[in-house]
């Protein structure tokens, strides 16, 4: 049984006087213990809303509807009450956000914020908590941790703040860590440090990691399984190597073709995807990607493409998939 099994997760936002927005539209994926799972997509694909829904952090009222299930052990993260969720959050499931500055309380020293987590979930207090906090900061590579504990978030650099946030997230050795664009706000060399730190944490502690990112490069270097999201649905899902070696969905190939690569020669033209993320066909009317797709056929419009399961859990949602090996008979 997987550690986390998300089935048909959907989130809609309805605001008075405005069109209802289906931010997440039937997302399914599972995370095995100790596995790194990537959710990749561009802005508006629903990846962040997915993570917030899993953490129970979406506002529970005012036109927000959450459907589907997310089984974490015996608990459905989507249906459990707020009190149980508060216990699970931080202890069993922890989250790291994109912007470390706004996720830390600016007027409370780092040390108190870290020990707070330790007191809340592990019952540590006083000198014991401080010692553990020092140890945690040390583990995430913050130099001179005793001193850092007394400092305020703004006194740390972006990279150090993200480390502090990771320290808080792993304080209770959670079974699952959700990282939402953890390195997007950081410089490349700092990004490399943080990714290395996350890799180490996963390797050493066996924590499962859901990595939410727009960067295919980050995915290629980190994830065991990758889910590519477009307009609120998983359009392709595969193990890391098959996905990059043999991408089937035109959106995946489009994304891969759009990224300038260090190892490509100068003057090689990028294969851009035309149009913008706004040109989306609503899923019930067909494939949302159809308006931008170069491989569009008549069958793309009418009803949403079914999920095609290939070998080795390689699944995609396309009626006219790309193929580097076999041509699909029409």
């Amino acid at each position: 049984m997987p550690l986390l099994d998300v089935k048909d997760l959907s989130v809609t936002f309805a605001r008075r006087g405005q069109r209802t927005v289906r931010a997440v539209d039937g997302v399914s994926f599972s995370v095995e213990a100790g596995e790194v799972v990537g959710l990749v997509g561009e802005s508006g694909c629903g990846k962040s809303v997915t993570s917030l829904a899993l953490m129970g952090l979406l506002p529970k009222q005012r036109g927000v509807t959450i459907g589907g299930s997310a089984m974490f052990g015996d608990t459905d993260l989507l249906k459990t009450d707020e009190r149980t969720m508060r216990d699970i959050r931080g202890r069993d499931v922890a989250m790291i956000f994109q912007d470390p500055l706004s996720s830390l309380n600016p007027v409370i020293p780092i040390g108190i914020q870290v020990t707070e987590v330790l007191t809340r979930h592990r019952g540590l207090t006083g000198a014991k908590a401080t010692a553990e906090a020092t140890d945690l900061l040390n583990r995430v590579g913050i130099p001179d941790p005793t001193r850092r504990l007394k400092e305020y978030p703004h006194q740390l650099s972006g990279g150090m703040r993200q480390r502090a946030l990771i320290a808080m997230a792993v304080a209770c050795a959670p079974k699952l860590l959700i990282a939402d664009e953890p390195t997007t706000a950081l410089d490349v060399t700092i990004q490399a440090q943080i990714l290395e730190l996350l890799r180490g944490l996963v390797r050493d502690s066996g924590t499962a990691l859901v990595m939410i990112t727009h960067d295919l490069g980050v995915v290629a270097g980190m994830c065991d399984t990758v889910n590519v999201l477009y307009a609120g649905r998983v359009v392709e899902s595969a193990r890391r190597k098959p996905l990059f070696a043999d991408p089937r969905h035109p959106y995946t190939t489009g994304l891969l073709g759009s990224v300038p690569r260090l190892d490509a020669g100068k003057g090689e033209r990028l294969h851009a995807i035309r149009g913008s993320v706004r040109d989306v066909l609503p899923w019930p009317d067909g494939c949302a990607f159809a308006p931008r797709c170069d491989r569009r056929v008549d069958a793309c419009v009418g009803e949403p493409p079914a999920l095609v399961e290939g070998v080795h859990r390689h699944a995609y949602r396309c009626v006219n998939p790309e193929s580097r090996t076999v041509e699909v008979p029409s």
């Binding site: 989306v280 066909l281 009317d285 419009v301």
Partner: peptide, 15 residues
């Protein structure tokens, strides 16, 4: 007819 509607809708989107 519903299908052509939807194709039209696609056209609208691009236009």
């Amino acid at each position: 007819s519903t299908k052509t509607d939807k194709i039209d809708r696609l056209g609208e989107l691009t236009a």
